[in-house]
Design a protein around this nucleic acid. Structure first.
Lengths: 191, 191
DNA sequence: AGGTGACCGGAAATGGAATCTGGTCATTCT
DNA sequence: AGAATGACCAGATTCCATTTCCGGTCACCT
């Protein structure tokens, strides 16, 4: 389906440039070089279009994170690299950034749902890694979902929230040290 | 200054009931049984009035938290009890709740400043406790401010954020277990 | 002299007209 | 025939003029 791909790409471009609310179906049609009606042959409405765009984005994100993981390396190294990758990705990715910005400014229900979905995907991904770590006896037994949630939120706090009330962002190595000394040490079976 | 106290109480009541933006100085004056002009003998403007109300609130919060701390008990016990107390307090305290709600809905600069101030106060309080713990060799050497920040944000994530995307709130003991198994274990000198 | 509320100006609410936009469907094109 | 299209529609949104509201002042009152 070349047409569908064209439209998806056009939609991603437009959402990235203008956000969800401010992109019009006319705009997407123009970017995709199709008539507006054609979009509705592939997607039932604007919201579903966003969904499909986000789904493909999540797919890309997972690939990125997986590339950052080395099955030989220790849990701590992998956990850190994987999450850093995700967060750098988040900052880089225009679409993700726009959605977050939009969610903060104006509460768009469709966008809110998407962000919840993305969060859930990350949690699942992390929880799976944690389960593997427990299996390998690298991590103490724990509730993987809870720990995954804690990990993600902690990282976001240090990477995103910190900047909001402090002059300078934390350096990657400051964050790594902090997590090594607290969360990761607490989780690891070896001291 | 009985007058000033009356006004402070009236303001706290009104801010709690209606939020910052929606309380009028007329309302405060009515609650305090004074003329509107009288308020301006004690406070330069509405924003300062909020500040003074919040300052007295923080004072109360600190007393609460300090009561939850037992110098004999372990760091982990104290850390948990202190923070739980703060968060319960937060939920109970109508004013705090209203301010947070208001900040989420509409960005009121004065309110934002107050919330940052409250956060800073909690961080300082926690960092002091952590320093004491390090002194007592109960906690490994670390950056107290960073760890305090991480602690607060983690707690908030599990107590507040969790509810937003999950059906049920976490129980106090689930949170306690999670923190014992991760952050607190990582921090403690004894395993 | 301290307390007060009528008053002021700018900010915000209101609401109705004008514009925009998601979604449809009769028409066109292949 | 069947896919593609864009004029069209209704409801949502924006705009903007008008009114209302409210923080802060100050002349007046007690």
């Amino acid at each position: 389906m070349d047409r569908k791909q064209e439209i998806l790409q056009a939609a991603a471009k437009s959402f990235s440039m203008f956000g969800y609310k401010a992109t019009t179906m006319d705009q997407v049609a123009k970017f995709a070089n199709v008539g507006k009606g054609t979009i509705y042959n592939f997607f039932t409405n604007k919201e579903e279009l966003l969904q499909e765009v986000v789904i493909s984005m999540i797919r890309d994100m997972k690939v990125e994170a997986e590339q950052a993981i080395d099955t030989e390396a220790s849990f701590i190294k992998n956990a850190h690299n994987g999450l850093m990758k995700m967060l750098q990705f988040r900052e880089q990715h225009l679409l993700f950034a726009k959605l977050i910005e939009e969610e903060k400014a104006i509460q768009t229900p469709a966008v809110k749902q998407m962000l919840i979905k993305i969060e859930a995907e990350i949690i699942t991904f992390l929880a799976d890694r944690i389960r593997i770590g427990i299996g390998k006896k690298e991590i103490r037994p724990c509730n993987p979902e809870l720990v995954a949630y804690l990990l993600l939120k902690s990282y976001l706090a240090m990477v995103v929230d910190w900047q909001l009330t402090h002059e300078e962002a934390l350096h990657e190595d400051e964050i790594l040290t902090l997590f090594k000394e607290t969360l990761f040490r607490g989780l690891a079976t070896t001291s």
